[in-house]
Design a protein around this nucleic acid. Structure first.
Lengths: 230, 230
DNA sequence: CGTCTCATTGACCGCGCTCAATCGCTGTGG
DNA sequence: CCACAGCGATTGAGCGCGGTCAATGAGACG
């Protein structure tokens, strides 16, 4: 599959490119269970860039393991995280020919990727794939609108509470949440500062709503109290 | 086309249903120029509900004339507007089997609607339609992420400025903007209060960035100043 | 002319940001 | 084994932006 060499992944330095080609066909990328497309596999270290804003959107990505964030930087350095992606999630489907946000690895992670043209070909040949792609984009839209609700009309405490519930739902560990991301990431996702996030968490701990055995480990002690805030 | 009677539009009272059936096939709904599907046409008065949150999403809608808002209400009455739709825009594609937001007419408007199942059938038969639907959802996603940026990381003045630029782009009237929506709508879209929106506009007028011949009519006098804020 | 609705303006207050110090964990070298 | 950075998280003090409450203004309509 020489074409993977002709359009290497943007983040691919020469060494990595060899790894990509060697790794090609090592895995497959499933579109919502509809079809499995032969895919390349790449590894990214913590905070490494997967793609940048305005880069051509030639690939579709799927998280195999680890966590990814997509975000945009405003002129003066303010950062807004649009979404976190966990194992099994597809990303890079944000439409258009160029990415509208950047993507980075929150933790070390494994990413499966296929060229967008291949996905589009599969979709044009198989209506089930096409429908799955539509559904995926629509789900993304729904999540983004949920995010809009969060940012537009909720207090700091409510935002952090909603975030914890979202994380608890994502990594179904029951009441125990292992946060993959730093306070800075959480703040930039919730449109707050790290200090406000930290204060909200401390306040919740004081009220026995959560336990904080360590900074990255949260235990929900009173789910009921969060539901009230929603 | 009796099926339109079997699954009437949710907002259809008996009188309206007759009008709908009478109006069936009066128009067509184009999906991104790809295909024209026979469509029903309905009229909605100012502030009339088009569909409600949690109602089954049986239809796909396209604005023929007028302006539509989609929004969600939080428990305590706070409202967040997700999006405004203008003539030519499709809405109600928010995925899932049930709508995730409500939709209302901002102004009197004409809406073309087709049953979702028809759109899905068209998509399964014609890859171009399927691709257009994907693209539409992806565009919606991009706009929602833009909205997230706005709400997460921008000051009141920046939000109002971005809103004016967005409206100017939507209704290409050059520097003159005819606002279809009230201050309350603007505030609920930007995650602000009407007082703050009003103050921001007055401040811009004082700085000669805009002229405000009337509350609903804005003229951009210094586009450059807005670009700086972005 | 009076009423109703929507927008503007003012006074005040509180939430969340800013700036800054401290804490706590982790890894590294003496 | 302890000392010491180095980094992220927490906590505190003070302030400013935007929210709240309230009064006034400006159009639209009967």
């Amino acid at each position: 599959m020489l074409s993977t060499q002709i359009i290497p992944h943007p983040s691919a330095d020469p060494d990595r490119r060899i790894a990509v080609v060697a790794g090609a066909l090592q895995t497959t990328l499933e579109i919502a269970g509809a079809i499995a497309i032969p895919a390349m596999k790449m590894s990214f270290g913590r905070n490494e860039e997967i793609f940048g804003e305005e880069e051509p959107a030639d690939f579709v990505y799927k998280v195999t393991s680890g966590v990814v964030r997509t975000f945009r930087i405003l002129g003066d350095g303010r950062r807004q995280i649009a979404c976190f992606y966990f194992a099994g999630d597809l990303f890079g489907l944000d439409g258009g020919d160029a990415h509208s946000s950047s993507a980075e690895a929150v933790t070390d992670c494994e990413i499966a990727l296929v060229r967008r043209s291949q996905v589009e070909r599969a979709a044009s040949q198989n209506p089930v794939v096409a429908h799955a792609l539509w559904r995926l984009a629509a789900d993304g839209l729904r999540r983004a609108e949920e995010h809009v609700m969060l940012l537009g009309r909720r207090s700091a405490g409510e935002r952090v509470g909603a975030f914890l519930l979202e994380m608890a739902a994502r990594e179904q560990g029951g009441e125990a949440i292992d946060l993959a991301m730093s306070r800075t990431d959480i703040a930039d996702y919730l449109g707050l500062t790290i200090e406000t996030v930290s204060r909200a968490l401390s306040e919740m701990e004081r009220r026995r709503m959560i336990a904080l055995p360590s900074a990255r480990h949260v235990v929900l002690r009173d789910r009921h109290a969060f539901a009230d805030a929603a």
